[in-house]
Simulated assay, not measured.
Amino acid sequence: MKHPLPDRPQHICVLRLSALGDVCNLVPTVRALQRQWPAARITWVIGKGEHSLLAGLSGVEFVVYDKATGLAGMRALWRELADTRFDVLLHMQQALRASVLSLGLKADVRVGYDKARAKDAQHWFTQRHLAPHPRAHVLESYLDFARLLGVEDLSLAWDLPVPEAAVEEAHHITAASPYLLISPCANPRLRNFRNWSAEGYAAVIEHAWRQHGLKTVLTGGGSTQERQLGERIRALCPEEVVIDVIGETSLKGLLALIRDSRAVVAPDSGPVHMANALGAPVVGLYATTNPERAGPYRWRDFVVDRYADAARTFLHKEPAELSWGQRVRHPDAMSLIGAEDVIERLEAVLAHPEIPQDMESPDEA
């Protein structure tokens, strides 16, 4: 017997802890829930860094879990919500840590992914499952939760809050001059292999300066890998063309920088999805991951896509032979992207700064 879903939920729990790009892609689902049930409370259990990005999101109560606190942090969160019972818990994180965390939350019904999309045995921790949706983009997978609850209006909306302090932080960096924003590094995790070359970025920076008079702002986190790549890029460019603030901005400041840029160039990482959410033109660089699943949703037509080439070259398979979402974990995969490919796509988004009209809403499932 299926657990019944609420017709008019009064209190909805969204469980999604990470990562920056994923929480950006989830916001349209939250907005769809708010449109359907404007009186419903929405509590989002979220990671610490992700909360600093989305803090102030209208109509959402955040409960923050810092994964560095481990089980002690889980217990503290369970105590915080001990007297709260949700009509429905939307378990939107396919990770064992999140599933364990979900066990301490009280809910009438727990909704998770269908078996084909579930990872880390997530379906064992949930009672209702999404309808199958093969080859869905990540953003569409999140909207499937709203579909299952009966939400009808799935049009895309973000309205991410960018406070005035963040705008001032960005203006202090750019002096309000037009600029290209490049976030050259993805998350420096083991065997991530999503980063492009310093030489490639330098060629794009020189083109943006010579052809459009755009300086480039380099952004990113403070890891050694990110700082070193920034230094290599700077060494290949005239000093006056690059503003390097890698490791020096707040996440809200990064939002303001992205929003006010002429365009963004980055590999598969948080900033491409932040740009997508803010309506900023973005060129995503994809070879190790499939942009049809994880590209910047409204700007997928402007992605530099070498995923199929990487699959053939390093896995000796056609993309159709790979499982949906499979990565090409090879250190040379991103070398399949040429500077001329990125420059061509950059010219395309600079000539088309508005959000492409045919990509404003997801396809109906």
Score class of each variant (00 low, 15 high):
P6L: 03
D7H: 11
D7Q: 14
P9C: 03
P9Y: 00
Q10V: 07
Q10N: 12
I12R: 01
C13P: 00
V14G: 00
L15W: 01
R16S: 00
L20K: 00
V23M: 04
V27R: 07
V27P: 11
P28G: 04
T29D: 00
V30R: 02
R31C: 02
L33G: 03
L33R: 05
L33Y: 05
I46Y: 02
K48W: 10
G49R: 13
H51V: 00
H51W: 11
L53N: 01
G59F: 06
V60H: 05
V64T: 13
D66C: 03
A68R: 15
T69E: 15
L77I: 12
W78L: 01
W78N: 01
E80N: 11
L81Y: 09
D83W: 08
D83A: 15
T84W: 12
H91Q: 13
L96N: 04
R97K: 13
V100C: 02
K106R: 14
A107F: 02
G112D: 08
A116W: 12
R117A: 14
A118H: 06
D120A: 15
W124Q: 10
W124D: 08
L130K: 07
H133Q: 14
P134Q: 10
V138L: 15
V138Y: 11
S141K: 12
L143R: 07
L149D: 00
G150Q: 10
V151W: 00
S155E: 11
S155N: 11
L156T: 14
E164T: 12
H172D: 10
I173M: 04
T174W: 08
T174S: 07
S177W: 11
S177L: 14
Y179H: 09
L181S: 04
A186T: 02
N192Q: 13
N195W: 06
W196D: 03
S197C: 06
G200C: 09
G200P: 11
A202N: 11
A203N: 12
V204I: 14
I205H: 10
H207M: 01
H207P: 04
W209L: 08
R210T: 10
Q211L: 08
Q211E: 15
G213W: 01
V217D: 06
T219R: 03
G220N: 01
R227A: 03
E231P: 01
E231R: 10
R232M: 12
R232L: 12
R234W: 00
E239K: 12
V241N: 09
I243E: 01
D244K: 05
V245I: 04
V245A: 09
K252E: 08
D260R: 12
V264R: 04
V265P: 08
A266R: 06
A266G: 07
P267D: 08
H273R: 03
A277I: 03
L278G: 05
L278Y: 02
G279T: 06
A280E: 06
A280Y: 01
G284M: 05
A287M: 07
T288S: 15
T288E: 11
T289E: 13
T289D: 13
E292M: 14
A294R: 10
R300K: 13
V304G: 08
D305W: 06
D309A: 13
A311I: 03
A311G: 06
R312N: 11
T313W: 03
H316C: 11
K317C: 14
K317L: 14
L322S: 05
S323D: 14
W324Y: 13
W324C: 07
G325Y: 09
R327G: 12
V328C: 07
V328Q: 06
M334S: 02
L336S: 04
I343M: 04
A351E: 15
